[in-house]
Simulated scan of single mutants.
Amino acid sequence: MSLPDSVRLFEMSPRDGLQNESGTLVPTATKISLIERLADAGMTHIEAASFVSPKWVPQMGDASDVMTGIRRKEGVVYSALTPNLKGLEGAIAANVEEVAVFAAASEAFSQKNINCSIAESLQRFEPVMARASEAGVRVRGYVSCVLGCPYEGDIEPERVAEVAKALLDLGCYEISLGDTIGVGTPLKAKRMLEAVNRQVPMGQLAAHFHDTYGQALANLYAVLEEGISVIDASTAGLGGCPYAKGASGNVATEDVLYLLEGLGINTGIDLQAVIDTGYWITAELGRTPGSRVAQAKGPCHA
């Protein structure tokens, strides 16, 4: 199959990247600056916050302040994760135009992560979807553990397809397929995508791969060949799964951009600007970027 002409990158670092930062809370002004820098680099989709209980995810406790504080750029979608109706109401009050809900392809992961079965999690989204529709807010769906689970091991592709189809039927405009613990390999990724694509059109699917085993770029290339044209990534490789030992986080946006540029695939994003942003935010967090491309190229003012 031929590669897509263009790819839409969905930037995850402000939410998925920062939510698991332990220790001190990342200042609201830093989060706002990160989001604005990413938009200035050419990102058109940025997951900026998560409207969850600060008790469970302290780093996201300032979601309203972040969403109302950013200088919104025309043509950029600033979305937020809203696991329940309360979260959605908070997002609507903060003028969020797009939200996301998440379900797992693994029963054990669903129980450990959100204390309910897959079926119950989907049922809980029904009022969320109805309210979002009423408010004119688009909803994106995530499926986690699509290529493996820390508790169950391998996940059958058909189970992933069932959950993806259920989210589509609920009204999600796009389904992001997450290799939450980064255990997938290219053939597994292709087989999973083939099963899902029998239930969900390729144009409504996205790839969200973590790089725990160093396979994320290979897996992305495999699904690009199958027709995927939306990729979730996180600047500097920020983020990870707290339930997976050694999970190193999302694939780095810089590495994905370098891959896509090498394939002649257009993104409209300035790679060097993203590299510089990655160096800036990791300095704020007291470390260096997790991106191999960023380490090789360095910041432009160095």
Rank of each mutant, 00 (worst) to 15 (best):
E226D: 06
E152T: 08
G69K: 11
N197V: 01
G237E: 06
V66P: 08
R72G: 07
L122Q: 03
R159E: 15
I46H: 12
E152P: 11
D5S: 15
R138W: 01
E89Q: 15
I275L: 08
E254C: 10
W56T: 04
M60V: 08
G75R: 10
G286W: 06
V274G: 06
S79P: 01
L38I: 12
P127L: 09
G286A: 11
N250S: 14
K31V: 10
R140S: 07
S79C: 04
G136W: 09
P242A: 11
I114L: 03
A104M: 08
C172I: 00
V128S: 09
I281V: 15
G153W: 03
L205T: 01
G171H: 02
L3S: 02
F125T: 03
N197T: 10
A132F: 03
D62S: 13
T288W: 00
Q272D: 04
A247H: 02
I269V: 15
T28Y: 01
L257W: 08
L220V: 11
G141D: 03
L285Q: 09
E174L: 13
T253E: 09
Q59Y: 08
G246P: 13
E126I: 14
E194L: 13
G214A: 08
P27N: 02
I35D: 10
N115R: 14
G262M: 11
G290T: 02
A80Q: 02
V26G: 09
P127E: 07
Y221N: 14
I265T: 10
A100G: 15
G227D: 02
L187S: 13
E225N: 13
Y243L: 15
G290Y: 01
P83E: 04
G87K: 03
E134D: 14
A100P: 01
